[in-house]
């Protein structure tokens, strides 16, 4: 206990020397091509590159933080990091708890991946990641839904026959189809309102900063170039 108090005191002391104006960016790191952990163990992907560029334009120092998808919103509101940049679609439900910047990718249809191209999804068992727009969509339709904590597990469930299909962003499914007999179904679902950065409701200043930075990237076309590079969505 004494040791703990000492180390906490030491931490507090060391922490005192660092300078301000660091924005901590929270992401999941398990959703290629949006965000993932690369071979070097660093966060990489579309949102890494986008976030670094936004911070450069806004003159902010940014630090990347990995957090589980399940607890990504609670940890934002309790202040463990300052933004969520994790392929999170803007929805009315989430907007009640946190605020979003303007969307940085346009709304795109979600797609199904299955082993059988002729599958009727309405009668099948559909896998989706918990607390996503896709899971909410399936639940609303009244289809049979199984939820998983990570995107990887939703795809694995289809491979091993636990689910008949998985519903997710098309850009993510593009990275998994083609192997092990997985194919995209023709049917798509138009859900979600584009992907934006999440910030605390009390943090309007930061929201405005990132809003302006996103707008400037939209205006000079660099955002479209980045979207095309990582194949995450349609163009603006």
């Amino acid at each position: 206990m004494k040791k703990l108090i000492l180390s906490t005191a030491a931490l507090a002391l060391v922490a005192g020397f660092a300078s301000a104006d660091v924005v901590r960016m929270g992401t999941e790191g398990a959703y290629a091509p949006w965000n993932f952990v690369n071979d070097a163990g660093e966060i990489d992907g579309f949102e890494r590159e986008l976030g670094d560029e936004l911070c450069k334009r806004a003159n902010l120092t940014c630090e990347w933080v990995k957090n589980d998808w399940d607890s990504i919103i609670p940890n934002l509101v309790s202040g463990n990091y300052d933004t969520i940049i994790a392929g999170m679609s803007v929805t009315a439900e989430r907007d009640e708890v946190i605020d979003f910047t303007q969307a940085y990718t346009p709304p795109d249809p979600s797609a199904f991946a299955a082993l059988d191209a002729g599958l009727d999804v309405e009668g099948g068992v559909i896998a989706a990641q918990a607390a996503t727009i896709q899971a909410a969509f399936i639940a609303e339709k009244g289809w049979t839904l199984i939820e998983f904590a990570t995107p990887e597990e939703t795809v694995a469930a289809v491979r091993n026959g636990e689910a008949d299909a998985v519903l997710a962003d098309k850009s993510f499914l593009d990275t998994v189809v083609g192997s092990d007999g997985l194919v995209l179904l023709e049917r798509t679902e138009m859900i979600g309102g584009g992907v934006g950065m999440g910030v605390r409701e009390s943090d309007q200043e930061l929201r405005a900063t990132f809003d302006a930075a996103i707008q400037s990237m939209k205006d000079d076309g660099t955002l479209n170039t980045l979207i095309a590079k990582w194949e995450v969505s349609s163009q603006w």
Binding site: L11, G16, A20, G79, E201
Partner: peptide
């Protein structure tokens, strides 16, 4: 403030500016 837990920057533990290993 609503859902948010906001303390002043100097009271953050560890400070947001401190390196990731400290967090």
């Amino acid at each position: 403030q609503g859902n948010d837990f906001v303390v002043c920057t100097a009271a953050k533990l560890p400070l947001s500016a401190s390196p990731q290993w400290l967090h």
